[in-house]
C-alpha cells in the first residue's frame, strides 16, 4: 500500500463522511440533531484540510464552526425553546423538483470539473516556500498580515458591524404601538382586535390573513 493509495483512502473516508453528515443536516427533523450533524461535517472537513496541509484552516474551522457558530445555533434553539420536533411538514412542496434540479446542477458541475478547468500559473507559495517560512501557520500569517492586511482589517469592521447588528436586532423591545402607516390593514385590524378584547391567546394570525 503506497502512501498515495493510503491518502486517497483517507480522503475517501473524510469526503464520504462529510457528505453523509451534510445530507443528515438537511434530512433530520430535529434541529438539534441537524446542528450536531453539522459539527460532524465540519470535523471531517477539518480532516480534508489537514490532508491538504492546511492545518491552520482545519483548526480554525473546528474552533469557529463547531466552537462558535454551531453553539450559537444551539443557544438560539434553547432561547426560543424549539428543540422539540414540530409536528408539521418539514419539507416544501417543491422538494422533489428541487432535488431533480439539484441533481442536474451537480452533474453539470462534475462535467465542468472534469473537462473545462483551465489551471492558471503556479503561484509563489510552493511547499518548499511554506516549509521555509516554518510551516502552514507562519506562511498564512505572512500572506495575511503582509499582503492582505487591509482586507483583514476591513473584515474586522464587518465583524463589528455584525455584532452591533445582531444586538440591535435581537434586543428585547417593549412593544410600542406602531402608527397605522407602518402596518398593513389586516395587521392594523388585528391589533385593534387584540386591544379591544382578547389577549394574544386566540387572536387571528395576522400572517395568515395577509397570505394568499
Amino acid at each position: 500500500m503506497t502512501s498515495e493509495t493510503l491518502l486517497t483512502l483517507i480522503f475517501a473516508y473524510f469526503a464520504l463522511a462529510s457528505v453523509v453528515f451534510a445530507v443528515l443536516v438537511i434530512m433530520l427533523r430535529n434541529p438539534v440533531q441537524c446542528a450536531l450533524s453539522l459539527v460532524g461535517v465540519v470535523f471531517h472537513l477539518a480532516g480534508i484540510f489537514i490532508l491538504l496541509r492546511a492545518e491552520f484552516l482545519a483548526a480554525a474551522h473546528i474552533i469557529i464552526y463547531a466552537g462558535a457558530i454551531i453553539v450559537l445555533f444551539l443557544f438560539t434553539m434553547m432561547l426560543l425553546n424549539i428543540g422539540a420536533v414540530e409536528r408539521v411538514r418539514q419539507f416544501h412542496v417543491q422538494a422533489p423538483l428541487a432535488i431533480v434540479i439539484g441533481a442536474i446542477l451537480f452533474l453539470e458541475f462534475i462535467v465542468l470539473t472534469g473537462a473545462t478547468i483551465t489551471i492558471g500559473a503556479q503561484g509563489p507559495h510552493s511547499p518548499a516556500w511554506v516549509a521555509g517560512q516554518g510551516g502552514n501557520v507562519q506562511a498564512l500569517g505572512q500572506v495575511l498580515f503582509r499582503d492582505y492586511l487591509l482586507p483583514f482589517e476591513v473584515a474586522s469592521v464587518l465583524l463589528t458591524a455584525a455584532v452591533v447588528g445582531a444586538i440591535v436586532l435581537a434586543r428585547q423591545r417593549p412593544r410600542r404601538p406602531r402608527s397605522s402607516s407602518e402596518m398593513g390593514v389586516s395587521e392594523w385590524m388585528a391589533e385593534r382586535y387584540e386591544k379591544a378584547n382578547v389577549r394574544s391567546s386566540n387572536r387571528p394570525n395576522s400572517a395568515e390573513e395577509i397570505g394568499d
Binding site: F73, G120, G123, V130, Q142, L159
Partner: peptide, 22 residues
C-alpha cells in the same frame, strides 16, 4: 496552485460565515 491567497480567502469566508450566523 501553490498560492496562499486561496487559504487567506477562506479566513475572510469564515468571517463572513460568523457575521452571517450572528
Amino acid at each position: 496552485l501553490d498560492n496562499m491567497l486561496g487559504q487567506a480567502f477562506v479566513i475572510f469566508s469564515l468571517t463572513v460565515a460568523a457575521a452571517e450566523a450572528a
